[in-house]
Design a protein around this nucleic acid. Structure first.
Lengths: 335, 335
DNA sequence: CACTATTGGGTAATCGATAACCCAAGGAGG
DNA sequence: CCTCCTTGGGTTATCGATTACCCAATAGTG
């Protein structure tokens, strides 16, 4: 457990050269030095099991090769891991590590940010679990380089968000191309993503000259939460009984779709023959295991992460702006 | 975005005292100093927005207040977040931060470990996504303080794992108490957890003087992976047709249970009236959304995380040992 | 009143890596 | 043969925080 740290001076002593020469040999690629010396030093470093002390370098440099990610419970969510993957991939290419800190309820964003700042990261991002607006104080807005999956209320920070409206249009077009004409939408109420998707849904149908068969909330608006009792089953039953029985149901997310599947199974309807189902999120574990596997719009989580890192590490900072990233369609068998 | 770092000397200059006095006032709780001076310094620090530079302290101390967590894709898994939560909670109480680095396929554990060691963490844990054996070289075994959800092959490192056998016994007892007597097991083949659960399953039934109705793999052993075609539906159909129709099906995990639900629904059987279903994992998103909500054994992920941190930060290191942590039953409505 | 504790705070060294600057040896050019 | 430049590498200061050690002033004691 006890790790005896090897320092440059240990190597220097053994090699009979100065510390600076060792530093140059191991890290400074361009340092003037005979190949002989460089090889000898590298060999000794290897033998001693030398590992760079980034803390020491960090003192001098003024920052550690870290990018802080503050989030409202990020690593808890299955999607969020995709954001981190995106960040991580881009960070590694730049020799940076991602340092994720999630703040729990009751803790202010400011205090979490200070926690992160203690490590003197190169840059800091703020990520949200679901698409929303986040209010940041002046100090915070100045310290955060990019918002992921959320928008800074005053627009002072570049924000990367999913193109909810565009995603909704795309899936509707897909349903139309598949020949579906009587389309209902069982949506997530009261949240930004749901609102924007509904806009896209209605717009895409209108362009096609078609009226929606119905648009419903999956739960009562007043009690929306992950544990709220679902209204999905009753909506499906109502839809099936109505004169305008739909030939496709678009769902606010994959969990809603799962409930729709169950309700349709009870009614004895086959997917996709009798009725198509599509949704948003591409929660893989769920969507791919449903029978039939669910066609769903995947959120651009990884792309947001990758782009965020590029923005954070860019030489030339861009002025704050809002960037909407496209969903992509994951075709399975439910349409 | 440019963060101007305030240092102790900035504060010292403003306060007209030495750097050491500022350090003592802000960090050294016991430093001798008039209350007056201390208050003045704190006020200036606040005004300047001072944030401790942990890198600088780290150089002196020899380590940063970090605990590294190396894992085989940890943050990708929904369970894994629970491990991190457990680690994080315990770490915070000790003033430590968790620094998670997942290694992707193709990268050796050693190189990831070196990556982490560059930051001079106080301790390092290794965590696995699913219960398994992990072979570590001597060097690695010496550098890793605790294994989470996996066992070091040679037993040189303390390992925390779920008590698979005990968990299986517990859920079987629960089914027996519920009056079920004809119990089948559709298991995950070829993995350690599945093997151990099967041992517990058989033992618990034997103690009750009961024979299992059947034990089946959920997929073909030869092709086991997350995407392997499932055999679940056919097993269920076979079970239902057999003379010994089961009154309970235990499933290797919640995803298998989901498929069992679907197969039972097609057969027109009601859960739990006609047949009970139980499983392992407590994948909340899934288990709580099934109809009826699924009764399942929750893995002790958070407990493993918490305990791991306690072991890592303990003053007195314990000799390496294997510790099995209990599952806990999450009663919903499927039994 | 002289002497010793105690309090309040400064000085300087240190951690490991880096960077600005300096110096010596040897080869090229005049 | 002498000067200039290049090559190889050493010296020393620096980053920010901490700490061992020292000094001055005051308070308490015989």
């Amino acid at each position: 457990m006890k790790i005896v740290a090897v320092s440059l001076s240990d190597i220097a002593e053994r090699a009979g050269v100065s510390v600076k020469t060792v530093s140059g040999a191991l890290h400074g690629g361009s340092a003037r030095m005979s190949d002989d010396t460089r090889q000898k030093i590298k060999a000794i470093a290897e033998e001693f099991g030398y590992v760079t002390n980034l803390a020491a370098r960090g003192v001098r440099q003024g920052w550690l090769p870290l990018v802080g990610v503050v989030s409202d419970g990020l690593i808890t969510s299955p999607f969020a891991t995709e954001i981190v993957r995106g960040l991580d991939g881009a960070a590694r290419s730049a020799g940076m590590a991602v340092f994720a800190v999630n703040h729990r309820s009751g803790q202010s964003i400011g205090s979490v940010l200070d926690e992160v700042q203690q490590f003197r990261p190169r840059a800091v991002a703020y990520a949200a679990m679901y698409h929303k607006h986040v209010a940041l104080s002046d100090r915070l807005a100045g310290a955060v380089g990019v918002m992921i999956n959320c928008r800074e209320a005053a627009g002072r920070v570049t924000a990367l968000v999913p193109d909810e409206e565009g995603g909704a249009r795309e899936i509707v077009h897909y349903l139309l191309i598949a020949g579906r004409r009587r389309i209902a939408f069982i949506n997530l109420p009261g949240i930004l993503a749901g609102t924007l998707r509904e806009v896209g849904f209605r717009a895409a149908l209108e362009e096609g000259g078609i009226d929606p068969v119905g648009v419903f909330p999956a739960v009562r608006r007043s009690v929306y939460s992950d544990r709220a009792p679902s209204l999905v089953a009753s909506h499906v039953e109502a839809l099936l009984k109505s004169g305008q029985r739909p030939d496709a149901i678009l769902c606010g997310n994959d969990r809603v779709a799962m409930e729709v599947y169950a309700a349709l199974a009870r009614a004895g309807l086959r997917i996709p023959d009798d009725i198509a189902v599509a949704s948003f999120d591409n929660q893989v574990e769920l969507a791919s295991r449903l029978d039939p596997p669910l066609t769903t719009m995947a959120l651009p989580h990884r792309a947001m992460g990758r782009l965020a890192m590029e923005i954070l590490l860019a030489e030339q900072p861009e002025p704050p702006h809002l960037r909407k990233l496209p969903f992509h369609l994951v075709e399975r068998a439910s349409v």
